[in-house]
Amino acid sequence: MFASDLLEMLYVGSADGAITALVAIGFSLVYGVGGVTNLAHGAYFMLAGYMLLWILTWGPIFSELIWLSVVIVLVIIAFIGALSYLVLIKPLQNSHINMILITFAFAFFLELIVKEISGTQPEPIDQYKLSDIIVVIGGVSMEVRVLLQIIIGLITVAIFGLFINKSKLGKSIRAVSQDKEAATLMGINSDRILLYTFIIASFLAGFAAYLAIPGANLMGPSMGWNYLTNSMAVVILGGLGSLTGSVVAAFILNYAMSFTLVFIPKGEIWTAIVPMVVIVVMLLVRPRGIFGKKELK
């Protein structure tokens, strides 16, 4: 009984951990490069999930060509990410509080639009399932699509790590995040780099939505905030600017949450508190996170 509970905890935690890692990497990237706390980051995830639903119910052409609709959704979400930087955030870079307020307003705007179109009820979206097969391992029934989700998520993170460490664009992104002025003096256009990071971040959030949502439910337009909170907790726990830190912290956080869900009575209420506790405790005890190098200012 205990072993199967433990296995279920690992299963749920890994599934959520892979998704949270993908979302949190994008959030951490934008925060590290531009100092932008993008409160709309969770909304990208939510919007991508709902766009999958809309495009699916819109016409028969797209439900046949799954890969095409996924590509369209990812392109649109990356475009929205770029647009939100160019139109809203870039002109306000001098004023921190206005920047936060405008991303908050944008997230709220996206949420309300989705709410107006689809309502607040959770919607099942099964059509894009990666696989229908269910296997039973150690007394816990696991869906193959969730296992695939974990594997694909980790592979994506690995590719992203290679990209940020080896490619030229990745190197310039790291340069800007370490020292913006010096990078600008070396001939890197830091505004354009920030634009690219927004595109990458929203793309990753959209991709995470594609992995996580088919087969599960769309939990209403306000679900983006959960992912935003979790990403923030992951960034604080793992340390800013550390890719390994973000991935490890995403799994730690989600194991803690699934532990609460499985082992503690009335766990479904208390799971929401876990990220909050992590944020407050880490900021009070070790503000630079587990893998962080420099102090947060």
């Binding site: 706390t37 936060i100 905030w225 909170t229 923030m232 990220p275 944020i279």
Partner: peptide, 12 residues
């Protein structure tokens, strides 16, 4: 807790 973190803590 400062800046964006404070805002997030109060929001959450």
């Amino acid at each position: 807790i400062k800046g964006p973190y404070l805002m997030l803590v109060t929001l959450v």
